[in-house]
Structure formats: C-alpha cells, structure tokens
Amino acid sequence: MARVTGVPISFLLARGQSIKVLFQLLRKAKQKNLVLPNVKQAGSEQGTYEGTTVLEARAGFYEKPIATIDFASLYPSIMMAYNLCYCTLVTPEDVRKLNLPPESVNKTPSGEIFVKSNLQKVYCF
C-alpha cells in the first residue's frame, strides 16, 4: 500500500485514509507540472482532521444479524462505481459549454457533476 499510494509505511499505521489520496494527487499533479493549493481546514487552528468514531465490540451471542460498515473500502467503491474523482468533476458551465447530454454525467445529491466513464475514466484509483 505504501508503494502504491506513495506514503511512508508509518503513515499507513498512524494516519487515516485521506493522506493516501492526498499523496496520489500530489504525485499526479507533479507529473502534469501542476501545483495543489495549501488550504487550511475551516474551524481548525492546526489544520487537523478528526476521523470517525469506532465503537467497541460487545462480545456475545446475537440472534439478529449485526451490520458492520467498513468505510475505508466503501468510499473508493462508490467513487469507482460512479466515476467520482477530481479528474472527472465538471462545473455546470462546463456542461453547457461542452454541450454534455444528461445521460453522460452523474449529479451528486450535493449538486456536484461528474462525467461518466465513457467520456473520462477515473485514473486516481
């Protein structure tokens, strides 16, 4: 994983998922002679990020099924399934300018628009 994402092995053990994505973005940007802005997170003095809550398991016998969710693999799966990536993101202006038909884009519930894989395949995974 360290070789694929470009992060030190210690980062894999001590940091979250986003550092792997950031390192891949940095690598791709360097290949294309681009730079990424250094943006501080809102509401944070040091730019730290707090991850998810992990509940302790309670040992015992359960008659009804217990659902477990592994977001580390869920997010990439959803992103790949719907071609969601910084490289497939387009603005509404781009959609109009390129005359993209509705069937060639995915619109998220929050309003972002991504082109489907027949126009631009996700390459950051």
Rank of each mutant, 00 (worst) to 15 (best):
residue 112 E to Y: 06
residue 99 N to L: 06
residue 110 S to W: 14
residue 113 I to Q: 04
residue 106 N to E: 12
residue 113 I to M: 05
residue 117 S to P: 00
residue 123 Y to P: 04
residue 123 Y to C: 09
residue 103 E to Y: 07
residue 112 E to W: 05
residue 112 E to R: 12
residue 94 D to Y: 07
residue 112 E to N: 11
residue 109 P to K: 08
residue 94 D to F: 09
residue 90 V to G: 09
residue 86 Y to P: 15
residue 104 S to M: 11
residue 121 K to W: 02
residue 103 E to M: 07
residue 114 F to W: 00
residue 114 F to I: 03
residue 96 R to W: 13
residue 92 P to G: 01
residue 94 D to N: 13
residue 115 V to N: 05
residue 102 P to L: 01
residue 91 T to S: 12
residue 101 P to G: 09
residue 87 C to H: 11
residue 97 K to V: 04
residue 105 V to E: 00
residue 117 S to D: 05
residue 116 K to V: 05
residue 102 P to R: 12
residue 89 L to A: 11
residue 98 L to G: 03
residue 116 K to W: 00
residue 108 T to I: 03
residue 86 Y to V: 14
residue 117 S to N: 04
residue 110 S to Y: 11
residue 123 Y to H: 13
residue 107 K to F: 09
residue 99 N to P: 00
residue 107 K to E: 08
residue 100 L to H: 01
residue 88 T to D: 02
residue 113 I to G: 03
residue 107 K to Y: 11
residue 97 K to H: 14
residue 89 L to V: 10
residue 121 K to M: 01
residue 107 K to T: 15
residue 103 E to I: 04
residue 121 K to F: 02
residue 91 T to F: 13
residue 104 S to I: 04
residue 102 P to Q: 10
residue 106 N to I: 10
residue 111 G to S: 00
residue 108 T to G: 03
residue 103 E to R: 07
residue 114 F to Q: 05
residue 97 K to Q: 13
residue 115 V to T: 08
residue 112 E to L: 07
residue 86 Y to T: 15
residue 92 P to S: 01
residue 106 N to D: 10
residue 88 T to I: 09
residue 118 N to G: 08
residue 87 C to S: 15
residue 111 G to F: 09
residue 114 F to E: 06
residue 119 L to D: 06
residue 91 T to L: 09
residue 109 P to G: 03
residue 93 E to Y: 15
residue 121 K to N: 03
residue 120 Q to C: 13
residue 109 P to Q: 08
residue 122 V to D: 04
residue 93 E to M: 13
residue 94 D to Q: 11
residue 105 V to I: 15
residue 111 G to M: 00
residue 99 N to E: 09
residue 92 P to C: 00
